[in-house]
Design a protein around this nucleic acid. Structure first.
Lengths: 208, 208
DNA sequence: TAGATTGTTAATCGATTAACAATC
DNA sequence: TAGATTGTTAATCGATTAACAATC
């Protein structure tokens, strides 16, 4: 039974990737798990285990080739080329989104259920299935009101999109065969508010 | 030794809160842990344990009074009144942020290191300590470039702000005595990209 | 060689779930 | 009463960490 990768591990992978890419051009050619672990405040064994799962083996006393490791991680999680996406709903998060994701995500079309916002650059929701048939779409990005959330998610699933990134204020519950990530600020606000209210814990209160 | 609440539990608390608030006015006066658990796809024992930690005891065969439970949760995590915050940096995430947080967060001032963007509604970073002395500030919201990240975080800490919400593209590593939450899209993109690439797992691939 | 690194196997830790007793 | 609920104690599960052997 092929061992799969946990979401926690996947999150760390992207952290490794971002760290490796942030290293200057003239930094040493090789990197060790210990170096990565120290930079990211993680355990070295954990980093080693993560890397062993998805990258080619390291070399004793040498570590891994930085460029090769970047390549291995990107290939594994599919970030070696831009991710294709469609957006359903409001684009108010888009400036910040682009600021964060840069050219890793290409939003190839925008859809809306609201006839008023439909126009040259926004299509009617009913056109989604046809569009996805013609254009390979990896991720559906949602930013809709609560009454449109499940209809929009269902339509994405029917159109063959199996990964949903939900920026709507209401979280989307999990559905069979579809991976969902909710970009919901309330839980995080709750954590920060809680610690702002209650005297700070002595030892690291977890950074989640 | 007073048992503290884990971040995972805190996240669930806000989910309970959002769910309870989403119930229609004319819904039953009482709610049970089982009902909440079913609505949020969680285990009923887990919900019961969470609620036992922070809310007044429930009543056998009756559950809890909905309004009282909302009140208890809000009081515990400090969301019974708006959270006060300052913003350092770019406000490109603000439309979406306001859309999500509504009136739960009040951003009382905006600061910038960039003299060009300073003006009527944006103060110089050097004014931050004085501002925080005069205005109680629970959370510092960051959205700055990587070179300004640690200076800004340090300045917040010096100004007595012990909770940081980081919307910058680069994550902030944990610091003694300060709670940090990074609003970083890359890890989530990684998860979605991974599952879009690899055939969907048979059973729920976790929703994080 | 000594030391920095790899990777693996066993132990620990924390969070979730199962089993159960109590009660209105 | 039976059943829906509460809460608690014990078991399970998964992820992290510790200990160790191997190697250049």
């Amino acid at each position: 039974m092929k061992r799969s990768i946990s979401n926690l591990a996947l999150r760390r992978m992207t952290a490794y990737l971002a760290y490796l890419k942030s290293l200057p051009e003239d930094s040493p050619k090789n990197v060790s798990a210990t170096m990565i672990a120290n930079a990211l405040q993680l355990g070295d064994v954990q980093v080693r285990k993560d890397l062993a799962k998805i990258a080619r083996p390291g070399h004793t006393k040498v570590g891994r080739d930085k460029a090769e490791l970047i390549w291995d991680i990107e290939r594994c999680i599919g970030l070696d080329k831009p991710v294709t996406a469609v957006l359903i709903g409001t684009d108010d998060f888009l400036p910040w989104f682009s600021h964060q994701c840069g050219d890793r995500v290409v939003i190839s079309a925008r859809f809306s259920a609201d006839p008023i916002s439909q126009g040259k650059d926004t299509m009617a929701l009913s056109e989604l299935p046809r569009f996805c048939r013609d254009h390979p779409t990896q991720i559906g990005i949602l930013n809709v009101s609560s009454d449109m959330l499940y209809p929009a998610a269902d339509l994405l699933a029917e159109s063959g999109v199996r990964a949903i990134w939900n920026f709507s204020p209401v979280p989307l519950e999990s559905r069979e065969g579809v991976v969902i990530q909710n970009e919901n600020l309330l839980p995080t606000l709750g954590i920060l508010s809680y610690y702002a209210l209650h005297p700070a814990p002595a030892r690291k209160p977890a950074e989640d």
